[in-house]
Structures are given as C-alpha cells and as structure tokens.
Computed example of a mutant assay.
Amino acid sequence: MPTTTPTPADAPRRAGLGTWPTPLEPAPRLAEALGLAPDDLWVKRDDLTGLGGGGNKIRKLEWLCGAALADGATTLVTTGAPQSNHARLTAAAGARLGLDVVLVLAGAPGASGSGNLALDGLFGATVVWAGDVSGAALGPAAERVAERLRERGEVPALLPFGGSSVLGARGYAECGRELLGQAPDLTTVVTAVGSGGTMAGLVTALGSARVLGVHCGAVPDPAGTVSALASDLSGTDCAPQDLRLRLDQVGKGYGTLTEPVMAALTLAARTEGLVLDPVYTGRAMAGLVSAVEDGGIGPGQRTVFLHTGGLPGLFGHPAALAAAEAALAAGD
C-alpha cells in the first residue's frame, strides 16, 4: 500500500503515491563483470515505486501533487519530451488523485504512439504538441495552456520540467536518507541526471562526494542546475565544481543511442536480468562502467546504482528496439 511519511504541521503536504522503502538488491554478477568484488555493487530499485509503471518521478510527484491538492487544483499541467517518464507518471498520478492532466510535449503527433505515449493515453491524459522546442523552452507553451484552462474555470497546477524544483527534490533527499538506513557504508551512488532534481536531493542528504551523476543531455547546464537546486534545498552553498558529474555519455544528443549505452543495457540485462532504458538508466550504467575503467570507482567500495525506471521508454525508442531485436535474430 502507498505510504506517507509524517511531516511537521507546517511542512508542505505530501500525496501518498508510492511504496517505500524501495528494495536495495545485490548485483554480484554485474559487479564481477565490471571488475568489482561481488559484494561491491547494489541496485536501489526505484523502478519499483509502484504507480504507473514505477520510476524516480514518483518521489518528486508526491510533493508536487500534494502542493497542487492543497491549492485546490483540478488539473495538472507539465512538460517533457514525447517519451517523458515524468509526463507518464504525472498522468498516472492524476488518475490516482482524480485530477485531469494536460501534457505539453515537444514535437508533433505521428512519429510514434508507443512506449510512454501509449501509457499517457491509457491514463487519460490530454497531449498538447508544442512543436520543435524542448526543456525550459516548453514553459511558455505550458503557461498558455494553463491560461486557457483558467478561462474555462479550471484550477491548473503547473508542475516543473522533469518534476525538478526545490519542492520536488525533497523526494530524493528522503531517498538519500532511506539509502543511509539500508547501506550506511555506501561510498558512491550513481544516478542519471536529467532535469537535475534527483541528483540534487541525493547530494543534499549524502554530500556531493558520495553522488556520481551521469549527464543525459536533458538540460544545457547540468552542474549549474543541480548546484542551484541543492543549494536552495539545503540552505547551504553547493558549488558546481564540487559535484561529481560525468558528461561523457551524451553522444550526439538526448535521444540518440550510443554504442556504450547499448553495451551497458545488454550487460545489465544478461548479468542480472535488469532492464534499463536507452536515455537515462542506460547512460547511467555506461557512466558506471566508465567510472570503474578510469578508477573513479574501485573494488572494495560499496557502490549503489540508482535504477530510476523508464522501461516504457525502451519500447518507444526505435534504435534500441532494433538493436535488441537484431541480437535475438542473430542468436547472440
């Protein structure tokens, strides 16, 4: 059953959407394949948060939706790429809470209706296509949608891109504290960095030295984005240069599949039966592989890979599906 952690009376309201704590599981075969000791590598299963297919956005949405309900919202409005995990889980949260959902997505209809988009429709969300814009540039389009809703008498709540705001990042400060209870000796948590809130929350709870972020290409300045969120959340300065952030897995851009990412997807699947996605967790795993290769992570250190979910996105990514199907056809 979804649970809600008690908070002080003056704290922001939190909606109960997920199931906590998520499991922390050993990954001995993957660890040995990377050159680590069998007990070195563990996987924090935030793909198993429950609602809507699971994923890290649920931790953020508990706070964001709680605030929306407290403000009397009737409709959630948010933005993202066509295969946005945040958009999919906002749609699921709206269904759970009895709120309408409008998703303002980059691009145009017709390219693909599979993966996360199919689930957006199943959850009853309305999609507004914003054309060839992305990230923060989607904000004005979402504002226009919200204004039209107000004119119709609705009360829209605008949720940030990726669910990443100081309020949303509270969810991952909580996750960091949850991890300390499960693995107090952890040395490094490896996470994908999209809109920045997940890493910012973890840094707030664990400190910048214990969090390794892998940039996925969703924002132009990942260090500045994470630094600003973490500083505002903690109330202390978190300098961009103090962050452990890998920038080497973006390739040609956010939606592109690279050979190291496909290799990482295959390795995780064939050693642990662990399914990753080609945009976020696949890049994070490729970053972990590179960190072991260059000595940033070594044997004898308790390393946690944060599985932030995203499985539906695999089925909306033609290049990743083609690569997986080609391996099947070849009998690899």
Rank of each mutant, 00 (worst) to 15 (best):
E62F: 13
W63I: 08
W63A: 06
L64R: 08
L64T: 14
C65V: 15
G66K: 13
G66N: 07
A67W: 06
A67T: 07
A67N: 07
A68S: 03
A68Y: 02
L69R: 15
L69M: 15
L69Q: 15
L69S: 12
A70I: 06
G72K: 08
G72L: 13
A73Y: 12
T74E: 02
T75K: 04
T75I: 01
L76C: 11
P82L: 15
P82E: 08
S84D: 04
S84F: 10
A87Y: 00
A87N: 08
A87C: 13
A87R: 01
R88Y: 11
L89P: 00
G94C: 09
L99K: 05
V102R: 10
L103S: 04
V104L: 13
A106N: 02
P109D: 14
G113E: 13
G113P: 02
L117V: 15
A118C: 04
L119H: 13
D120A: 08
F123V: 10
F123C: 02
G124N: 11
G124S: 08
G124P: 11
A125G: 06
A125P: 03
T126K: 07
V127W: 02
A130I: 04
D132G: 01
D132N: 12
D132S: 12
A137V: 02
L138T: 13
L138H: 14
L138E: 08
P140I: 14
E143H: 03
E143I: 10
R144L: 15
V145A: 05
V145F: 08
V145M: 09
V145C: 09
A146I: 06
E154Y: 05
V155T: 15
P156T: 12
P156N: 10
L158R: 13
P160K: 13
F161I: 11
S165N: 03
A169Y: 12
G176N: 09
L180C: 00
Q182H: 01
P184E: 13
P184W: 08
D185I: 00
L186R: 10
T188Y: 03
G194Y: 01
A200L: 06
A200Y: 03
G201S: 04
L202M: 03
